[in-house]
């Protein structure tokens, strides 16, 4: 275990205080402890300087995905961002997520995500198949990767389509990496029978994704969002809407839904 000895005993944090309309960055000094993470520092500020500093957190073990924020401009979970990863004496800037409307300080209104989720066709197995399911490990390995998602929404935060181009409403809504991952988990489930391709193309607008991969870079669960979820879904959309030969190929070799 590495315990650093030469580091200074104090860290400096610049934390955004305020709401979406007005606010400012405030600077706090926090004593350093071995193995400390940014969330510990935020808690120290709460307990000692600012009891009303708003922050979401639950498990403090990178399992629930509540404490999402931007630390030095990087969308991260505060509970797994180690303080000793910063340069000694470096000022650590903590901001709320940019993509979602700010409620206060580090807490944003992420309810948009839940509304998007409701629109995805749920898991739909064949109801007449009442026998005990036989599913082999290799059939579900892909799906299991997607189901590691802890819904921290950091991928939604970093995705420029939502973050900067604000394609969140109306006819131009982009469902975002999180929900492409969820859809991939459903589409590739060996027992699912529903078809979500039309939704992906025409309502979730998978075409807005230009696979610049920032979602994969920030994912704390290290899900290969782009390579394993979004691109395979894009290819399935191509099969259905852009590629005449694919239909012939499918008829010859099978594929798609297991019929």
């Amino acid at each position: 275990m590495s315990e650093s000895h030469s580091r200074s005993k104090e860290a400096t944090l610049k934390v955004y205080r305020g709401d979406g309309a007005q606010g400012q960055f405030e600077t706090y000094k926090v004593p350093m402890e071995a193995g400390m993470v940014v969330l510990d520092a935020i808690h120290y500020i709460q307990a000692n300087y600012a009891p009303d500093l708003a922050v979401r957190w639950n498990c403090k073990a990178a399992k629930c995905g509540s404490c999402s924020a931007e630390v030095n401009g990087h969308p991260s979970l505060m509970c797994k961002t180690r303080m000793d990863h910063f340069e000694d004496g470096e000022e650590i800037v903590v901001q709320p997520m940019k993509t979602f409307p700010l409620i206060k300080d580090l807490v944003t209104d992420v309810s948009w995500n839940y509304r998007v989720n409701e629109k995805i066709k749920p898991f739909s197995p064949d109801e007449s198949d009442t026998k005990e399911w036989v599913i082999y490990q290799e059939d579900i390995e892909r799906v299991q990767e997607f189901r590691k998602c802890i819904e921290c929404f950091l991928c939604q935060d970093v995705c420029h389509v939502l973050r900067d181009h604000e394609k969140k409403d109306g006819n131009e809504q982009f469902m975002g990496p999180r929900f492409l991952v969820r859809t991939a988990g459903l589409e590739m489930h060996p027992k699912d029978t529903a078809d979500r391709l039309d939704y992906l193309k025409n309502e979730g607008h998978i075409g807005y994704c230009n696979i610049t991969k920032c979602c994969s870079e920030v994912c704390p669960e290290e899900i290969h969002i782009t390579d394993n979820a979004i691109i395979p879904l894009k290819e399935r959309v191509v099969d259905e809407y852009y590629d005449p030969l694919a239909k012939v190929f499918k008829n010859m070799f099978g594929g798609g839904k297991n019929k």
Binding site: Y136, D139, P190, E235, D239, K250, G255
Partner: peptide, 14 residues
Amino acid sequence: RHLCGGSLDCFSSC
């Protein structure tokens, strides 16, 4: 990758 197998939902029992 999609053409050779990625388009399948089921790898073994099908």
